[in-house]
Amino acid sequence: MNIIKKIYFLYYDGFKNMKLGKSLWLIILIKLVVMFGIVKWMFFPNHLKTNFDTDLQRGNYVLEQLTQTKEN
């Protein structure tokens, strides 16, 4: 059996014979969908990427923030 087949069956049999692992994979999948499909998409846009098109604009914006008299 060549190495590709061996690797394929390692994963195939591994996933097929899982007991507890099946529930864990389900949790991982739900979590990833919630995090990337809902949380990231709905609540966490990248502030600078969304509001500016170029790095130059982003840099200028941050410089503006730093040089205006905003205090802690």
Partner: peptide, 14 residues
Amino acid sequence: EFEFGTNWSNYAWI
């Protein structure tokens, strides 16, 4: 990492 980009964008940039 999401929070860096959204809530802490000045920091993330710097």
